[in-house]
Design a protein around this nucleic acid. Structure first.
Lengths: 217, 217
DNA sequence: ACACCGACTGAACGATTGTTTAGCATGCTG
DNA sequence: CAGCATGCTAAACAATCGTTCAGTCGGTGT
């Protein structure tokens, strides 16, 4: 933990405070983290935290907005590179959660924070979920237009079902890692998870897809 | 809020404290709920809470164990009435989450508490999830033995996938209610959700099942 | 009758909470 | 140079936290 920021950290103290509180909020929840903990993690005095953000609540809101922005920027990259193929079984990124994990640095606290937001009964969380739902709807529309999936009797529910399943992987990641022995969002884990998921999405629980091994180039 | 327990409440003060803290923990999280809030909700002094449970942490552990017991008792009823048919597409209760909601009184705080446990990175949460996972495995085994579903290339992952999807409905209930306009765990909502889910599980995203309307008795 | 015990409370304990205040540097601007 | 905002801290603020303590009350056993 020593020398974390001692050598050439060109972030302003304000940015450091924001980053450190983002990290602490993601791990422990905004309610239980104290201003003094944040100040200590950022290497400043508690008074400076209030000086820059007005109050702990002000800091909380700014961190929320910051995460929302990061998330939105990441969505921009995703739709930019793969269009409506986010849920496309043929694409490499077969899961929104997996793409999410791929587009952020390894130790980033943002995923944990987003997880907390999604489950948090706040406007920020509602906004986030609504955004993902709209994305899921348009992705399903794209698949339907391409003949890759049927819109179903109730497209709204079908899109919600696919989104919920995708997010479940993200929300229950740690629990699934425990019972499976592999992090389902890691490369190895995805290699186990994706075929099973795609098989069900392709033909249901009874389908027996051809053995995917030994395919000619 | 008046007269909540004023007329013939034969619970002991200890039980009232436990119930009220269960309710408050479920809503706000154990970390942010204060002993004084619990005492006020139970209509007793803060000192009595400590007198009965040793400390706030002691109370917390006892409530955890209590919820675990309630949950286990409910699982007993479920497996007693429907055996391995918990995930059976043909059974009326097509979702574990839905059965969960059905077997508890309407305003019960237990589901919200269980939700918090499942997401909480505690031994109690791990225990709970492991229990559900084992149930999902045996349910999948049962379906496979009955020829109703293939075990898949990786049965462990397939069981985890089905469980995660089921729990997603439970974890994201409020968010799904917002975007769908219907609580997916209510009777009306399940009538929309179940056919879509069963259709995908039966034949994948491309299947077009026969219109289920106008069927002769 | 007395002693005892468990349920229970009011008041206080020290620790910790978010926030305020006064003041010290530093650097820019006139 | 003076003036003034900016970044920042040490110290203290009242409020609230979990917990402790002394003591009251109602019953139960002897």
């Amino acid at each position: 933990m020593l020398y974390m920021r001692s050598i050439s950290d060109d972030r302003t103290s304000r940015a450091i405070i924001r980053d450190e509180s983002l990290r602490l909020f993601a791990v422990n929840g905004p309610g239980t983290v104290t201003v003094r903990q944040i100040a200590a993690a950022a290497g400043v005095s508690p008074a400076l935290v209030v000086h820059h953000f007005g109050s702990k609540e002000g800091l909380h809101q700014e961190v929320d907005q910051y995460v929302l922005d990061v998330f939105e920027a990441m969505l921009g990259e995703l739709t930019g590179e793969s269009g409506a193929e986010l849920l496309d079984p043929k694409s490499g990124a077969s899961s929104l959660s997996e793409a999410f994990a791929r587009h952020l640095p390894d130790g980033s606290p943002v995923p944990a924070y987003v997880r907390r937001l999604l489950l948090s009964d706040t406007d920020a969380g509602r906004l986030l979920f609504r955004r993902l739902y709209d994305l899921s709807r348009s992705a399903l529309d794209g698949l339907a237009a391409a003949g890759l999936a049927a819109p179903g009797q109730d497209p709204a529910v079908r899109a919600a079902f696919l989104l919920a399943n995708d997010l479940a992987l993200f929300l229950l990641r740690d629990r699934l890692t425990e019972v499976l022995g592999t992090d389902p969002l890691s490369a190895d884990g995805m290699a186990r998870w994706a075929p099973e998921m795609l098989s069900i999405y392709a033909g249901g629980l009874n389908a027996t897809p051809p053995q995917p091994q030994g395919e000619a180039p």
